[in-house]
């Protein structure tokens, strides 16, 4: 059965908590922000640099990794950890989200998500079993179940259908997991913006023997008040001694609010993507480094930051290389 990762709550402020999540590849101090390394790398950073930034867990995308390098190769080389030279923990999504968000032609049936592969236009089917099969080949410490995702603004019977289907797909996923002792499978709380459906879903999921939970289907442009309510309803029901991963939420303000609501794990491509477009994150917001006003600004990005970029380079220097020279992305400072 599942190896329940040790998890304990150190402090509570209302619902907020700090904790240590013990995973096969080391401990993760939560609340934790997980940078997204879509294709087995984090935009121009060496795995060693990530470790030096004290990064304890990164996220890989099952859809992309399933395409290239593909589960066969990953299995052959002993998983993504080995393949990319990453010693700390890994989390993978189910692959379903990419299909729904990237592909026009996704059709969802009880069996799974049917979609047209963008590279050769062939029709493929991602089932809960297939998702776990790929994630087993990747070998992440935490895997996500395939869920039936609907836009958070959807209303009506489709939301209910998706919620119940998500629970059925969880059970299929749990059954398919070949590495139950080394890979933790997280269920996903669905139910749109309907408080009753959310509650029902959470209550059903906690009956399963799993090590942690995810809250999904949010942050798709819904009203902030409703968004917070849905998170809070979910965390009220989820057991206090297991980690909660709020999927797809990474903007600084949302992070703080959702920590207060009892979430522990977050992801978003936000920091690395902003770096690529020449912005740096600072406590007060963002610096658009290519703007002319930084031309003679001889301060570091952030006076209080200890990253190697802030230790060595000024805003003025970064202004000269940003979006132009191939060193720029590699100097991205991480928050």
């Amino acid at each position: 059965m599942l190896s329940v990762s040790k998890y304990w709550v150190n402090a509570l402020y209302r619902k907020a908590r700090t904790s240590k999540i013990t995973l096969p590849h080391g401990e993760v101090d939560a609340p934790v922000f997980m940078p997204v390394g879509t294709q087995g790398t984090l935009k121009g950073l060496l795995p060693e640099q990530l470790e030096e930034l004290n990064c304890q867990i990164i996220l890989g995308n099952t859809y992309h990794l399933g395409n290239r390098p593909g589960p066969d190769l990953l299995e052959k080389v002993g998983g993504l950890h080995k393949f990319m030279g990453w010693k700390k923990s890994l989390l993978t999504d189910s692959g379903g989200f990419q299909m729904v968000s990237l592909l026009d032609l996704a059709e969802i049936t009880e069996e799974g998500v049917k979609f047209q592969a963008p590279h050769d236009k062939s029709v493929m089917m991602l089932t809960p079993e297939k998702s776990i099969h790929i994630q087993n080949a990747i070998g992440a410490d935490i895997m996500m179940q395939l869920d039936d995702v609907v836009a958070s603004t959807t209303t009506g019977p489709r939301v209910e259908e998706a919620m119940y289907r998500t629970i059925r797909w969880l059970d299929r996923g749990l059954k398919a997991n070949k590495n139950a002792t080394t890979q933790n499978l997280f269920p996903i709380v669905q139910g749109g913006l309907d408080p009753d459906l959310r509650r029902k879903c959470a209550q059903e999921l906690i009956k399963r023997d799993v090590a942690g939970f995810a809250i999904g289907g949010l942050s798709g442009g819904e009203e902030k008040k409703l968004f917070c309510k849905m998170v809070s309803i979910s965390t009220d029901i989820l057991p206090r001694d297991k980690p909660r991963y709020l999927m797809g939420v990474g903007f600084a303000v949302d992070l703080v609010v959702c920590v207060a609501l009892g979430c522990d794990m977050f992801d978003c491509v936000f920091p690395t993507r902003t770096a690529r477009f020449g912005s740096a994150l600072v406590p007060t917001g963002q610096l658009q480094l290519k703007k002319d006003k930084y031309k003679k600004d001889f301060r570091p990005i952030d006076d209080s930051c200890s990253c190697s970029t802030c230790q060595r380079y000024t805003r003025a220097y970064l202004h000269t290389v940003v979006t132009r020279e191939p060193v720029a992305c590699c100097l991205a400072h991480s928050t």
Binding site: Q39, G40, T41, G44, P47, V77, F83, C330
Partner: peptide, 25 residues
């Protein structure tokens, strides 16, 4: 070198195919 002591041809091949920055680094 750092690359040869930490990474494989297969990994660099993958990074090149998916046009990742780390390949060039």
């Amino acid at each position: 070198c750092y690359t040869c002591t930490h990474h494989t041809r297969a990994y660099i091949n993958h990074l090149l195919k998916v046009s990742e920055l780390l390949a060039k680094l």
